[in-house]
């Protein structure tokens, strides 16, 4: 148990440290740049205005709103204090909506889309990879190049191809959005049905993209494990091949959990961009609208929330891994 406590303690400590660093970066990076964001925003807002004092007024107002007229350190503490209260500022493009408000409605779409999609992609990919490693001849020859090719299709590319094929060409799926555009979110059966039909394409496009990479990783892990000494030994003890294959796939799959933890950031990045293609009402699309509208508070909040999500998922995966792989416990005794 001591080993576990040490392991989890270490993981949680890392989580806190990275979170702090992420918050600091999120705060400082935009402020490090030579350009004055308030001036830029004022410029946008005051387009066409000729009255210098009115422009000055707008500038002052935004300076107040951001607190950029205060010293850097004080700004940071205000930022952290507000963040802890759940206040992430006010959106520019959707004024006077609160950023936290916009994000809390988008985040569930993203979580509900990406989490299942990544898990299903991971499972299917591992299954295919294991099959490829086990069957090898022929099957492997077709599946491997195909997986390699698939894993190299960018997430947004897969999204566009699937959209064009299934929504535009065959018209068996809606063209985008999270639900039919003429509906208002509620808990009626019709709405749920609409959500489910709109869910299919984004979901499967993310699944398709993650399958390839996972399958390749699983295949080489499995081949590595199939050649391990314990496989030979188990065979010479008369244990059935089917049982040994069970050992191998379990052992090959466990490191894949860590692999998922390491790649989750990249995967979510790709999937967020795929959201834009489907105009899915999640964080990806929010970020896109924020970027196009130069809505600085919203961009900052989305990146922060995405970082937070990635950190949480990574931490959870690490904890799960610690429980399911005894090798971790042993490593902590060293």
């Amino acid at each position: 148990m001591k080993g576990y406590r040490k392991y989890f303690g270490k993981k949680i400590l890392w989580f806190v440290i990275t979170l702090v660093v992420a918050v600091i970066l999120n705060f400082t990076l935009p402020r490090l740049m030579p350009a004055d964001p308030v001036a830029a925003i004022t410029g946008k807002m005051a387009q066409g205005m000729t009255d210098a004092s009115a422009v000055q007024e707008i500038y002052k107002r935004y300076e107040e709103e951001f607190g950029t007229n205060k010293p850097m350190l004080e700004q940071f503490f205000i930022f952290v204090k507000n963040m802890l209260k759940g206040d992430l500022g006010t959106s520019f493009s959707q004024y006077p909506r609160k950023v936290s408000d916009i994000i809390s409605s988008a985040i569930w779409w993203t979580v509900a889309l990406q989490l299942p999609a990544i898990i299903v992609g991971w499972l299917l990919g591992n299954l295919l990879g294991a099959l490829a490693a086990y069957i090898r001849k022929g099957f492997d020859k077709v599946l491997l190049p195909l997986s390699l090719f698939l894993s190299n299709v960018p997430a947004f590319g897969m999204a566009v191809v699937m959209l064009v094929l299934f929504a535009v060409k065959f018209k068996i799926a809606p063209i985008g959005g999270g639900y039919a555009f003429d509906m208002i979110p509620n808990f009626s059966w019709n709405f749920v049905k609409s959500v489910i039909t709109h869910y299919q394409l984004p979901f499967w496009s993310i699944v398709m993209v993650s399958i390839g990479g996972q399958a390749i990783g699983m295949r080489s892990m499995s081949i590595y494990e199939l050649n391990a000494d314990y496989v030979k030994y188990a065979r010479f003890l008369g244990i059935k091949d089917r049982k040994i294959v069970g050992y191998v796939f379990r052992n090959a799959m466990l490191p894949q959990v860590t692999g998922l933890a390491l790649s989750i950031g990249t995967m979510i990045g790709g999937a967020l961009v795929a959201e834009i293609i489907f105009s899915y009402p999640g964080l990806g699309s929010t970020m896109y609208t924020a970027v196009t509208a130069a809505d600085y508070p919203l961009i900052s909040a989305t990146t922060l929330i995405i970082t937070f999500m990635v950190l949480i998922v990574t931490l959870l995966l690490d904890i799960v891994y610690g429980f399911i792989d005894p090798r971790v416990k042993a490593a902590q005794f060293d």
């Binding site: 999120n26 950190l311 990574t314």
Partner: peptide
């Protein structure tokens, strides 16, 4: 380690935007 866990594309977005 810190920069492995903080998603690269988030930094990329922040820096590019800035």
């Amino acid at each position: 380690n810190v920069f492995t866990v903080i998603p690269g594309f988030v930094l990329l977005i922040l820096i590019s935007y800035s």
